[in-house]
Nucleic acid binder design. Structure first.
Length: 111
DNA sequence: CTTATGACCCTGA
DNA sequence: GTCAGGGCCATAA
């Protein structure tokens, strides 16, 4: 039921960013889920590409996006990894996330 | 055109 | 639970 998606770079970026902005505080999502919710199933890597290139003063809640394994995609010990963990903790998440926790605060909702 | 790279994901061992 | 392999797809060189 799936076929190659045709879209403009601008449109893709717009939809992904608005989807990211919709993640409620206290919730978490994954790269693949964001891509799918924005209408681009299978484009997890491109969501990562967009997040990587966010402007310095962006208001996008990038820290609420983790990988499907329930962990930060940054290298443990790196500065960005620490920053993301700190933000998540300040929003009420446990230090050790993991898949189990992810399913309880996941966005969008499972069906 | 071909290769390499990456804030990914799924499956199986 | 962890780890490797293959699949994935846009960008950069």
């Amino acid at each position: 039921m799936s076929m190659p998606i045709t879209f403009s770079e601008h449109e893709f970026k717009d939809n992904v960013l608005s989807t990211l902005n919709a993640i409620p505080k206290g919730s978490l999502s994954t790269y693949g889920a964001i891509a799918k919710a924005a209408g681009y199933s299978g484009y997890a890597r491109q969501v990562g590409y967009i997040l990587k290139n966010l402007p310095e003063h962006s208001t996008i809640p990038w820290h609420r996006v983790i990988n499907a394994q329930g962990r930060s995609s940054f290298s443990p010990g790196s500065e960005r990894h620490a920053a993301q963990c700190a933000r998540l903790i300040s929003e009420g998440h446990p230090e050790t996330l993991g898949k189990a926790h992810l399913t309880t605060v996941f966005w969008p909702i499972f069906l």
